[in-house]
Write a protein that binds this DNA or RNA. Sequence first.
RNA 1: GGAGAGGUGGCUGAGUGGUUUAAGGCGCACGCCUGGAAAGCGUGAGUAGCUAAACACUACCGGGGGUUCGAAUCCCCCCCUCUCCGCCA
Length: 435
Amino acid sequence: MLDIKLLREKPDLVRERLASRHGGDDAKVSEVLALDERRRCALAEVEKLKAQRNAASKEIGALMAQKKSADADAKKAEVRAIGDRITALDHEVAEAAMRRDELLLTIPNVPHPSVALGATAEENPEVRRWGSPASFAFQPLNHVALCEKLRLVDFARGAKLSGSGFLLYTGWGARLERALINFLLDLHQREHGYQEVAPPFIIGEHCMVGVGQFPKFRDQAYAVQEGLDASTLGKLYLLPTAEAPVANIHREEILPGADLPVRYVAYSPCFRAEAGAAGVGTRGMIRVHQFDKVELIKIVPPEFGYDELEAMVRNAETVLQRLGLHYRVINLCTGDMGFASAKTYDIEVWAPGQGQFLEVSSCSNCEDYQARRMNLRFKDAASGDNRFPHILNGSGTALARLFVALLETHQRADGSVLVPEPLRPYLGIDVIPIP
RNA sequence: GGAGAGGUGGCUGAGUGGUUUAAGGCGCACGCCUGGAAAGCGUGAGUAGCUAAACACUACCGGGGGUUCGAAUCCCCCCCUCUCCGCCA
């Protein structure tokens, strides 16, 4: 969430920078400020009263010690009236604070000044491209045809098990998926300096709020219930991304400054309800309810936030370069960015069978927006202050679409697929054969 | 699921209604002492709100609510950890 002090001191700046974002409307900012003002007024008054009461209570204690019980009783009656007023004001403070914070959670992060103003994905500036689209001396197949021919994914039986949007990987497909996961984890852990973690796949609601998934995207999550106990519904969720548990690892902690930067890499499946997206790109593996992903998370001092973001994008690009996949990097405009992000790069890989670029990575600096929500701080060694760090997340990368691009790019005339060199040690073969 | 124990400051550990707005110890920072260090002595140190800053003030003893002039302490609800038992991959 945004810093209430920033809103208080520079409301116009916030309003202006939020204008091009979804959900960043003026009315909310005004209401937050009004509630904040109410809270502060009540707080100032109640603190004065509490100081009075504390002093009086001390006197009563002294009077009673001297056995002057009549004096003490008189004083008690006097203080009782203050107590009632305090109770009322306490409630007013708490309620204003609660409503203020509830509203504050629904206001998105303010974009970094370098981010282009825009409304839709069409206005995202392209940053760079790598490689060139694969060209074929034959008629290339799309990934669905390749998967069926090579028996890598059984779409029909996946749907039979769990409905459309769920995949059953089979044979070399299952092994390729596992090889990719291991390759990505090893690359980031061994070569890029990330510490590997394996998080729970079911996570508490507070983690979802912490990263900004909730309250806004509640409708996109799979909620979990414990057995037959309906009262537990809504406490736990299947994770939509490893960002949710991993970014929260240090929530409500004060990290020693020397521990920063913290860099984590984690594999997890990702579960997304994709409510309202039915019928849009649902064929094949492009948009599914469950996919694998290797996620990168960084917790860094604000001074390094943007350098670390650039490095993170390069780390994700390395994946595509090693696998020989053509891609482009784009910089999301204000209107296309995620809720919690201040600046986002997307990496899109070329899928020849689709004739289009597919998003396989999204790298964001959320600045201190998430840290504030989860109350994660670090102790600045120089100043001794507790400060909110920048939290970054990036896919490194998402797998289903990487799988698609890899098959479609490296297919051969007979329909078999060449295994890129870095995956061969993991798979033990050079070519995925026709069964 | 059953039974029990427990959650206090960076750690340890007292505290069952009023100089405890948290003793003592360890560790920490700074100073004195020393040729230098250790020991010793002294001082200081939590988080947050309020403030331009400081002082003062307020809140915080797992979380929430209640009783009271006053709650770490009494009452109610919840969460978490540990031990044993049962079930289980």
